[in-house]
């Protein structure tokens, strides 16, 4: 029996156009979805439960709007859904402090999360949370086998490594070769009725503040050529102009 937590975050749909109004991104018109790698984390958590027994709790830190991502996780099959109420943008220190408290309160043998969130792209939460809990961690795993310890596959210089990970541990999941299950009708009905368990904690102040958001610097228009023969000239320019060959 395993007590399993999976972290899920709501982010803008990765197809969405991101606009900056003034000096902040404007997400008011953007559709929100579960961060793509979190789908793999949820699937891995469910496979862990299927193999060892136990229960999966999905946890998010966010405002009331983030309940949707928990319901999505519920529809796919997690047992419990927990939201830590917080509307503010948190830096890594504040976020992980809150998550560490939540994980300690809920109790868990393993925490799965995404390798990076689609908004921050950071990849900080898994390893940072593990350090605060004093747990082991592995990041960017592409497959996980379950037992008294975990056996994961992750990229290493020159190939992949199979690594044994003692529990408790935090595992941040890359895409790998697993197929994520889709919600079925029963799951969707259950998710509709499910109640989100809302927790309130003191949120530490952030030591990192956002000064501004901006659009990526526009790239100067490149040189454009017609026909394959131009590849000879481009090869020369790569050496003589760009200095990259």
């Amino acid at each position: 029996m395993a007590n399993i937590i999976v972290l899920v975050k709501q982010v803008p749909d990765t197809n969405a156009r991101i606009a900056v109004a003034g000096d902040r991104v404007d997400l008011s018109a953007v559709k929100k979805v579960m961060s793509p790698y979190d789908e793999f984390a949820v699937e891995t958590a469910l496979q862990h439960r299927d193999s060892s027994g136990g229960e999966v709790t999905a946890v998010t830190v966010g405002g009331a709007g983030a309940d949707k991502v928990l319901k999505d996780a519920k529809a796919i099959g997690v047992d419990h859904i927990v939201r830590i109420d917080c509307d503010a943008e948190l830096d890594s220190n504040a976020l992980q402090t809150v998550l560490a408290t939540a994980v300690s309160n809920l109790g868990a043998d393993v925490v799965y999360c995404g390798k990076s969130a689609a908004d921050t792209g950071a990849g900080s939460t898994g390893p940072g949370l593990a350090e605060r809990l004093g747990w082991s961690s592995v990041s960017n795993t592409i497959s996980v086998a379950f037992g008294d310890q975990l056996s994961v596959v992750m990229p290493a210089s020159g190939g992949n490594a199979r690594v044994s990970v003692p529990l408790p541990a935090v595992v941040s999941c890359d895409k790998g070769n697993i197929k994520v299950r889709k919600p079925n009708v029963k799951g969707i009905m259950q998710a509709k009725k499910a109640k989100v368990d809302v927790h309130n904690f003191d949120i530490p102040t952030s030591s990192i503040s956002v000064v501004s958001h901006s659009m990526p610097p526009a790239k100067p228009a490149g040189k454009s050529y017609q026909g394959g023969a131009a590849a000879a000239e481009v090869a020369q320019l790569l050496r003589d102009e760009a200095n990259v060959i």
């Binding site: 792209g121 990192i208 659009m215 990526p216």
Partner: peptide
């Protein structure tokens, strides 16, 4: 970069 490079974030 944030949002997969669709925007930039400057922090202090």
């Amino acid at each position: 970069p944030i949002y997969s490079g669709k925007a930039m974030q400057t922090v202090s």
